[in-house]
Simulated assay, not measured.
Amino acid sequence: MVKAKKTTIHDVAKAANVSIAAVSFALNGKGTLSQATREHIIATAEHIGYQADALARGLRRSRLGAIGIVNRSLDLLGEYFLPGIDAFDRTISTLSALALQRGLAPVVLPDLTGASIPAISLALDGYIIVSPQSGDPVLELLDNREIPYACIGFDPSQAGFRSWASEDDAESCLQVMEHFRRQGAQHPSLLRGESENSWNVSSEQAYRTWCAAQGVQPQVHVLDESSGVAGAVGLFDKLWPQNKTDAIYAMTARHAVGIVTAALDQGVDVPGELLVATGSDSEAARFSRPAISAIQLNPNEVCADALNLLIERMEEREPSGPVLRRAKFRPRSSSLRR
């Protein structure tokens, strides 16, 4: 016999055409909702058979003073230590330090839907989820348990979710494309990862929009992030010289290093014949030869924003997000012709 799927707070929000936060406010008698909206949400919840998780309600009443941090990009890579790629370390360490400063103990955990998660994971006061994926099962779990969370980046499938902070990835992509154009590139391409997270999705959308405005044929290549340097080397060997491109924006630093490595091995002049930049600055990009132009991420501000958004949800206040921060593009030798 197939077990019926449990009705979740997300289902109530969808049926009532309101946000998840509004459902939480209505069912818990909090927030500044109008009486009509509150009654509408409660009636909708009763109509579709929603029953709040008693454990989740109990946890909210007895705070532990601890929050969880989950990095979904690392979960999907299946690796948690990436030498030369310091962006992940900086995000986790910054979140941890900021949480401690706010009197909250940070607990770093892997995929919450995995088999080896400690029991305390569902007793934490809330979570910051870094780089959620489209339709992310970790967010679904937290919604079902009514555990508050905020995100760095957003789930592309959750259009109405507001408790997230990020660099403005679309604007970052446009910075790189305009830099390529000023350096003489006429056929720039995008190398993104397979993961359907906001970083990849927003960057591709911005790239295609830019290409349409410039009358340029878009060239989007997709590689599994875990393929690393070797994956990008293999891709470049297939692309060059048959593929007409004179600039490559590789979202991950390891893919950018792979492109530069393969280009030099084939005698391609970087930057003379090919411009290269990456969407994530790191030691690997900075110490490459030539050094690779990169988007410099801004963990201090973005992590502080995400923590503030989480605390809002923990205190059942109206969300003030999303919050976008402008990242800075650092041109280096790999893309400077003039």
Results as ranks from 00 to 15, higher is better:
116 S>D: 14
105 A>M: 09
147 I>T: 14
157 S>L: 14
165 A>T: 05
38 R>W: 10
32 T>C: 08
211 C>D: 07
5 K>C: 00
243 N>F: 06
91 T>S: 08
330 R>D: 12
63 R>W: 02
69 I>P: 07
248 I>S: 03
189 S>T: 11
204 E>L: 09
37 T>C: 03
180 F>D: 04
62 S>D: 10
26 A>Q: 06
139 L>P: 04
192 R>H: 12
257 V>P: 02
219 Q>M: 12
55 L>R: 10
326 R>A: 11
55 L>G: 04
95 L>K: 07
273 E>A: 12
192 R>F: 08
64 L>C: 02
84 G>F: 11
95 L>N: 02
44 T>I: 01
42 I>T: 13
310 L>W: 08
318 E>I: 00
22 A>C: 11
303 C>H: 08
251 M>H: 13
73 S>I: 07
159 A>Y: 00
277 A>L: 03
8 T>L: 13
321 G>Y: 01
166 S>A: 15
173 C>G: 14
335 S>P: 01
184 G>F: 12
46 E>P: 00
326 R>C: 01
94 T>W: 08
112 L>W: 03
225 E>K: 08
224 D>N: 14
34 S>T: 15
263 A>W: 09
267 G>F: 04
14 K>L: 11
191 L>I: 05
191 L>E: 08
92 I>N: 06
19 S>C: 04
217 Q>W: 02
18 V>C: 13
215 G>P: 06
240 W>N: 10
308 N>A: 14
227 S>P: 01
305 D>E: 11
210 W>M: 06
156 P>N: 06
88 F>Q: 12
69 I>N: 06
56 A>F: 07
161 F>S: 00
3 K>H: 04
118 P>R: 05
22 A>G: 12
211 C>W: 02
118 P>H: 07
